[in-house]
Design a protein around this nucleic acid. Structure first.
Length: 426
RNA sequence: GAGCCUGUAGCUCAACGGCAGAGCGCUACACUGUGGCUGUAGAUGUUGAGGGUUCGAAACCCUUCAGGCUCCCCA
């Protein structure tokens, strides 16, 4: 290993064709789920002024967890760590000319300066999908249904992954009833978020530390253990009713422990977890926000959306064996080259195949056939064609089915037709 | 930003401070008109990088880079 080779930047990822297949597999499923609900694809800039995030995000976040640098003009720019602020600006800029509700989705690269570990890199792809301009529980249900549709489409059944739902307004009224003040809400949210990670005794101590009384802590535990709490919320009642009609009820469970750290969520919040693994991992999350446009100069618009990263999803699909076998090459057919004299015959033939819409490649040089067949085999191609002196003389071509090992000889004129039929049958 | 673990052939991993190895993969041949299977032969390393201790370092020490686990964070 020569030390002169420059390494990749920490936390970035190289996509060899195999990994690219996985990335595109996820992208394809994301697109299919988004499109099946009528969402339009969009994208924002990959580089933004840091101020765009400074407005809404915490200081630590912008300073410590973003890739920020000075451009040649002296402006501070950052590689986008999320899409929502860009979306908010884009909506605000055309607020009065858009047709509502806006249903938009995007899949693109993002960067966060974090400690890389399994399931978390500094460069990742993220699916963002939002509906803006409607604030009904039924709209919330639709986004959850999009998420469920995606999970189903990649083979993650409800036994493997579930979407847990809660509602900020419901929790707020419960906290009010316990006399937990507004100022303490954020700390209490953090407290709830951490419950699964902490030992009970330590968690209790932490609760007292942030100023909860014993009755408040007891009340909080009651709330967090009450999985029928949603019945008190009209929003959630309507949400679950809509989810049933949308055919995804089995994917969704109410869970009062779902808080989501984000300050800007105001109503429904949800998070999907892989449930069958040794540790539960969040695979996507989102919720309803009411006032995202204020910071970018727009009128208040309510929206609901979620985001899903490609890294964790890719790991889960691999671990669960849910990935199809990816083709190594898009070419299904290899046209062998017999010798230098006959090479052009093979090139003509492969061109005919391409013109007919068959992905095909000719071998690169007229080396001996075993080598060419070995290549076709390794690349997992379906058919290999042989065009040697015997065939040319008789105006025929040999087609070998590399999957079954069967071989047929067909007339040169009927070749394209035969290949297409054979491919269909494989 | 903090703590801990790891880094040896393309991959998975061995090697008490004393000759760097195995399996798989790879290449060639058996097989000058046909891949997979089988057999035979072969190639491959500054032991992540840099420095130190030692007669001698893959191993011990320091620095650094990368990966992993956890805390933090999760927009």
């Amino acid at each position: 290993m020569a030390n002169k080779i420059i390494q990749t930047v920490k936390g970035t990822r190289e996509f060899y064709p195999e990994q690219m297949s996985l990335r595109n597999f996820i992208f394809d499923k994301v697109r299919a789920a988004s499109h099946s609900f009528g969402y339009q694809e969009y994208d924002g800039p990959f580089i933004e002024a840091i101020d765009l995030y400074a407005a809404k995000s915490g200081e630590e976040l912008v300073k410590k967890q973003s890739f920020t640098f000075e451009d040649r003009g002296g402006d501070l720019v950052t590689l986008r760590p999320e899409l929502t602020p860009s979306l908010a600006r884009m909506i605000a800029a055309k607020q009065n000319e858009l047709t509502y509700p806006v249903r938009w989705w995007s899949f693109g690269p993002f960067w966060r300066y974090e400690q890389p570990q399994k399931g978390r890199s500094r460069e990742f792809f993220q699916w963002n999908i939002d509906m803006l301009g409607v604030s009904s529980p039924e709209a919330d249900a639709e986004l959850i249904a999009v998420a469920a549709t995606f999970l189903r489409s990649v083979g993650l059944s409800p036994e493997l992954a579930l979407i847990y739902v809660n509602n900020r307004r419901l929790m707020d009224s419960e906290f009010d009833a316990l006399g937990i003040s507004n100022e303490k809400r954020i700390e209490v949210s953090n407290l709830v978020d951490r419950r699964s990670k902490m030992e009970p005794a330590k968690w209790d101590a932490y609760a007292f530390e942030i100023g909860l009384s014993q009755p408040q802590l007891d009340g909080l535990k009651n709330i967090l253990g009450n999985f029928d709490l949603w019945k008190k919320s009209e929003e959630l009642t309507r949400l679950f009713s809509a989810l049933e009609a949308l055919g995804v009820k089995e994917y969704v469970k109410f869970d009062p422990n779902i808080m989501r750290g984000l300050l800007y969520y105001t109503g429904t919040v949800f998070e999907a977890f892989e449930t069958s693994g040794s540790l539960k991992r969040a695979v996507l999350g989102g919720g309803r926000y009411d006032n995202l446009l204020a910071d970018v100069g727009g009128q208040p618009v309510s929206g609901i959306g979620f985001a899903m990263g490609d890294v964790v999803m890719g790991i889960i699909l691999q671990e669960k064996g849910l990935l199809p076998e990816f083709a190594l090459t898009p070419a299904q057919v290899l046209v062998t080259l017999f010798d230098e004299k006959l090479s052009n015959e093979s090139f003509k033939l492969v061109t005919e195949l391409r013109n007919a819409g068959v992905n095909a490649m000719a071998f690169s040089e007229p080396v001996k056939l075993p080598k060419q067949f070995k290549f076709a085999d390794k690349m997992k191609m379906k058919l290999a064609l042989v065009l040697g002196p015997d065939e040319v003389e008789k105006s025929q071509v040999v087609i070998k089915n590399l999957v079954t090992g069967e071989q047929v000889q067909v007339a040169r004129e009927a070749l394209v037709q035969s290949v297409m039929e054979l491919l269909k049958s494989i």
